[in-house]
Design a protein around this nucleic acid. Structure first.
Lengths: 194, 194
DNA sequence: ACGACATTCTAGCGGCGCTAGACATCCTGC
DNA sequence: GCAGGATGTCTAGCGCCGCTAGAATGTCGT
């Protein structure tokens, strides 16, 4: 009774991850507009309704992929920050660079995390830990004494997101991203805001 | 022959604008996901295929609405900039504030301009004038002597766009937008980059 | 008045997210 | 060992989407 249900639970969790991975791969190869419930079902070799026994709807699948993405982004930012010298400017620069690299390397994943509508809760008590962890990497680039460091992190993140998404859609020239990054970091870290 | 065709042309242009306006209003009231070709056709009291005699597809309709948006945004930024004192910092602040106000006042229009996929050409030779004009308002906030002012404008715009879109989707708390704006402007205008 | 042309509509294609209800499979208690 | 009920899966289909072919309607120059 118990052992059987455990096995079932394992199989279920396995299939859950199978769906998420398939969705992510499909999105990364062909873009999110190609991720339909039919194609996804065919790819995991189950019929459509099983998707709905795991997820409330398509948005929830996108949300699960996004969560996967945060679990990848957070340690990546962390490693970048720790590898940098302890000068505050260097850490900030390293984290920002790692962020932009992530955005250009995994555009579909990035979209799921920051552009597409999902049911993920941001900036609240029920914010999933990986999500919080990624944001905290930005916060930790600023002095713990400064009680405005969350604000600084929000602005930094906003600027990076804007750069990522506007250059990704061709609204600003994708070439000069490095120059923009240099300027941004120098301005944010440059003057220790009044 | 000529007069008749002129009348036809006029009627056609009139109906073109009717479609664009209807799409915009529908989007502003119910969001873009409610803007379907069927509902739009019903609203302008024509059948679906006439939409396709004016626009190549739905993306082109969104693009036309976006262009409308730029024609509104550009003079708004311009007025804000000219109303501000000539000190560079003040102008930048005024333009940024006007931009964010536009984004929160007209979220659907803003989405069409900057988020949804359209067939508008940015940052190229065939960029429509209103689009270029809006961007130039940011450029003109910086000294004409500095040959990096385009770069500054791109970063400023990116940051604002990030703030607008992340707070609009609840990914950063929508409340502290003013504080973020203060910080951003002080950092960008504060130190005259290296 | 009428043939030629342009315009607009009806009807429908294939695909979407999602779900009801039939069907198979497996565990449990006798 | 087996009936019966719970569990899981599938087939089929609903209402909607963007888009288009071809019929029907109207309009114009001669």
């Amino acid at each position: 009774m118990s052992a059987i249900n455990e096995r079932r639970e394992r199989e279920r969790a396995r299939r859950h991850q199978l769906i998420v991975t398939a969705a992510r791969e499909l999105a990364e190869v062909e873009g999110w507009e190609a991720v339909t419930t039919r194609r996804l079902a065919e790819r995991v070799e189950y019929s459509q309704p099983v998707l709905y026994s795991h997820f409330k709807g398509k948005d929830a699948i996108v949300g699960a992929v996004a969560l996967d993405g945060f679990s990848e982004l957070a340690p990546r930012l962390r490693r970048a920050r720790e590898a940098a010298a302890p000068e505050p400017g260097d850490a900030l620069r390293a984290v920002c660079l790692a962020y932009l690299e992530f955005a250009t390397e995994r555009p579909a994943l990035y979209q799921a995390m920051f552009v597409l509508p999902t049911d993920l809760k941001f900036a609240s008590d029920e914010t999933p830990p990986p999500l919080r962890a990624a944001f905290d990497e930005f916060v930790n680039c600023f002095s713990p004494d400064d009680d405005r460091r969350e604000l600084f992190a929000e602005v930094t993140w906003s600027a990076l997101h804007g750069m990522a998404v506007l250059s990704g859609s061709g609204r600003i020239p994708p070439g000069s991203q490095d120059d923009r990054l240099d300027f941004l970091v120098s301005q944010i870290a440059g003057t220790p805001a009044d």
